[in-house]
Design a protein around this nucleic acid. Structure first.
Length: 379
RNA sequence: GGACGGGUGGCCGAGCGGUUAAUGGCAGCAGACUGUAAAUCUGCCGCCCCUUGCGGGCUACGGAGGUUCGAAUCCUCCCCCGUCCA
């Protein structure tokens, strides 16, 4: 019994884009999908009610490593699982902690067995293995679990990238062995996705994908992008890697991207994406609009009575002026984070919905061309 | 009227004879942010000039004098502000 099932509803004849339905234990997700990031079981500044009612989020991300450290996966298990704990009725994907191998580089040590992390909270050492990562995610009750991987920084030397791929594959196999065993005794367990690594090396990407295919997973992820490489290279690598993955399974590109890049990745055949940009940049005063970025703290908005984005009908744009948003930011008011995050996520969701509609209506190539033209004009 | 304490760049506040245009903080201005150690981080922040460089010039620590090679820092007088005593 699979953890999730993927159903392709429409495919673009001229690009790799497709629209689908991803059926999870907590509801169906329309793809392509953008997933907001809620690392610590919270999409910062928003309530689950906002996510549901304002954005119609169907799938969001949480982080295994962070929740393992605090409050602890066993605590969450005892409280009925992550969905109940955070009051979120729909689907959850949990990242394995593989990204923390990258982002907490100076607090961790990679060994064959797994990763030793020195907690950023109290300094205590914890060993994360492929098995424990699965175990923690099962305790959380994720709908989609991610296999522990090693995410390298850019640039990575070929040899270290090669070793990293081998390790990631071995870890994925170990994760799946453990997962298959536990799946039988865990009714309603979610799906486990392995992650293709290989830095920016095509042959490593090919080999990694090839080996992971043997696992016959319900879905596959592409990791190791957006780690400092030029954007063109991210796109190139995604373009190369996505077609290596089974057509009939969802493809998840981890950690991307900029608003105007969403359509590009969809064109590669990507079905799922997540990124902290809309939420983090929102809190830092960088807002994405149909006319490009608005850095709301700039003095030019001091007396700007216009809405943030004329073409957006999110709660923020319908009710507040740029001048007010700037004031909230300058004043350090909490409300700013909420209004800004609401808008930025809405911007991403509107783009994704337009992309999906275009695929369904057979006019995705036109949308992609228009997106490129608009991006070129803004730059 | 007397006794103390104090007046520093937009604000608060260090410095108390020599890389001090002056530590910090705030405010201001600009930039960054891509599977979140992030409501974070970085840079600028007296004026003018060569867009060059730990460059040049000017003006600055209440006011005016003075001491000194050199003063925000020491001395004198004055002006203001606090607290306490009359």
């Amino acid at each position: 019994m699979p953890g999730v099932e993927f159903q392709i509803v429409a495919e673009c004849g001229r690009t790799g884009a497709r629209a689908g339905l991803l059926h999870t234990p907590h509801g169906t997700v329309e793809t392509p999908v953008f997933m907001p990031v809620g690392t610590q079981a919270s999409v910062k500044a928003l309530t689950p009610r906002d996510l549901l009612e304002q954005l119609d989020v169907q799938l969001l991300l949480a982080n295994t490593y962070h929740l393992f450290l605090r409050p602890g996966h066993e605590v969450i298990r005892r409280l009925g699982g992550l969905h109940r704990f955070m009051g979120w009725p729909r689907a959850i994907l949990t990242d394995s902690g593989g990204y923390q191998v990258f982002s907490l580089a100076d607090l961790r040590k990679v060994t064959e067995e797994g990763v030793w992390f020195r907690s950023h909270l109290d300094g205590a050492a914890h060993l994360f293995t492929p098995e424990t990562a699965v175990e923690v995610q099962l305790a959380l009750g994720s709908d989609i679990l991610m296999a522990l991987d090693e995410c390298l920084p850019y640039p990575a030397a070929y040899e270290s990238a090669r070793q990293s791929v081998d390790r990631t594959v071995r870890w994925a196999r170990a994760a799946f062995r453990h997962y298959r065993r536990r799946q039988e005794e865990t009714p309603g367990a979610g799906a486990l996705f392995p992650i293709v690594q290989g830095s920016m090396y095509p042959d490593l990407r090919r080999r990694c994908a090839g080996e992971l295919l043997e696992l016959e997973a319900d879905g596959y992820a592409i990791g190791g992008l957006s780690v400092g490489e030029p954007r063109a290279l991210s796109l190139e690598t995604a373009e190369l890697t996505a077609p290596l993955l089974p057509r009939e399974r969802p493809r998840y590109l981890m950690g991307v991207g900029l608003p105007e890049e969403l359509a590009e990745y969809v064109a590669c055949g990507i079905d799922m994406m997540d990124c902290v940009l809309p939420t983090r940049n929102a809190r830092n005063g960088c807002l994405f609009t149909s006319a490009g970025r608005v850095v709301i703290k700039q003095a030019r908005y001091q007396e700007d009575g216009a809405p943030l984005d004329e073409n957006c009908d999110c709660y923020t744009c319908r009710n507040f002026s740029r001048a007010y948003l700037r004031h909230l930011f300058q004043a350090g008011e909490i409300l700013f984070a909420t209004l800004a995050t609401l808008h930025n996520l809405r911007h991403y969701f509107d783009r994704m919905r337009a992309i999906r509609r275009a695929i369904l209506e057979g006019r995705f190539p036109e949308l992609l061309a228009a997106t490129r033209a608009a991006a070129a004009q803004i730059e």
